[in-house]
């Protein structure tokens, strides 16, 4: 994501006063917007109680400091995200390799899997796996949610992997083949190391999606951040305060990850130019 205008203006830097004016204008508009929303809520007679929120973030007594419910939920969100991430990489890579084999059965399986996943809503997939597949296979609720999530993200990850592998120059394949390398050695030593470089940035943004999509597992009673938010909301009716806090926590996490993406992109672009 760039913040520059397009086409780039020829001037090297903007006149600082104009920047200042624009930023002030922006801040004014934002303040106006927030003020408008605040007044609107006042009209509804909503009673803001922000002071009740911190106890859900952290609790501390004299010499003890512990995480509040929301932070515990964030922990579960991280846990789900990490496990799903590993599974996603595995499923994604397998599917990508299956799609590139000569075997029609392998390609067929990969194709059917991808069409199924990409053409139905994640929410329904979670419900389906949790309520229909899991009881048939005796899966626990947590794993049902994690598997639903990884299957979903895996379909998108496989596209990233495939694009990365396909982007490798044809000459590389031919050179590897002419050296008499077996397919495994070829992938392991020639293709994947190069592909990884191109795959890593889009894969990290897929991780951002994973964090966001993990909110949906709250619908099957997994105690993640969103579910904790919903439960506190149902108990205390601090609707607005809770949802703003939850959104802010997600924003901090995803923005940090997006920041990592950008650093990665810059590093890899830089190193590629130095070749």
């Amino acid at each position: 994501m760039s913040i520059n205008s397009y086409p780039p203006s020829g001037k090297p830097a903007r006149f600082p006063v104009a920047t200042l004016v624009d930023t002030t204008k922006y801040l004014l508009v934002m303040t106006g917007l927030v003020w408008f929303l605040a007044v609107g809520t006042e009209r509804l007679g909503y009673n803001w109680q922000w002071y009740r929120i911190p106890q859900y973030l952290w609790q501390h007594t004299e010499h003890d400091f512990s995480c509040g419910l929301l932070m515990q939920g964030l922990g579960v969100t991280f846990q789900i995200t990490c496990i799903s991430m590993v599974l996603m990489l595995f499923i994604g890579l397998t599917t990508a390799l299956l799609r590139m084999t000569d075997s029609w059965a392998a390609r067929g399986v990969a194709r059917v899997y991808m069409e199924l996943i990409r053409n139905s809503p994640l929410l329904i997939q979670i419900f389906f796996i949790y309520f229909v597949v899991a009881p048939i296979l005796d899966m626990s609720g947590f794993w049902a949610a994690v598997i639903a999530l990884s299957l979903f993200e895996g379909a998108y990850a496989s596209e990233i992997f495939r694009a990365g592998i396909v982007s490798i120059d044809k000459g590389q394949w031919e050179a590897a083949k002419s050296l008499g390398m077996a397919p495994y050695a070829m992938y392991r030593h020639i293709i994947l190391p190069q592909a990884i470089r191109r795959i890593l940035p889009p894969l990290t943004s897929q991780a951002v999606s994973l964090v966001k999509d993990s909110a949906l597992v709250s619908t099957v009673a997994i105690m993640d951040l969103t579910q904790q938010g919903r439960m506190i909301d149902a108990e205390t009716f601090l609707t607005f305060e809770i949802w703003f806090t939850v959104a802010a926590i997600y924003l901090v996490v995803t923005l940090t990850l997006s920041g990592v993406v950008r650093i990665l992109e810059r590093r890899f672009n830089g190193s590629q130019q130095s070749f």
Binding site: V34, A38, T41, W50, F244, A248, L251
Partner: peptide, 18 residues
């Protein structure tokens, strides 16, 4: 900035208009 503004205004702007 936008976020903190949002939270700040919503937090403070309650007493008089209520």
């Amino acid at each position: 900035t936008f976020l903190s503004l949002l939270i700040f205004t919503l937090g403070c702007n309650q007493a008089p208009t209520r």
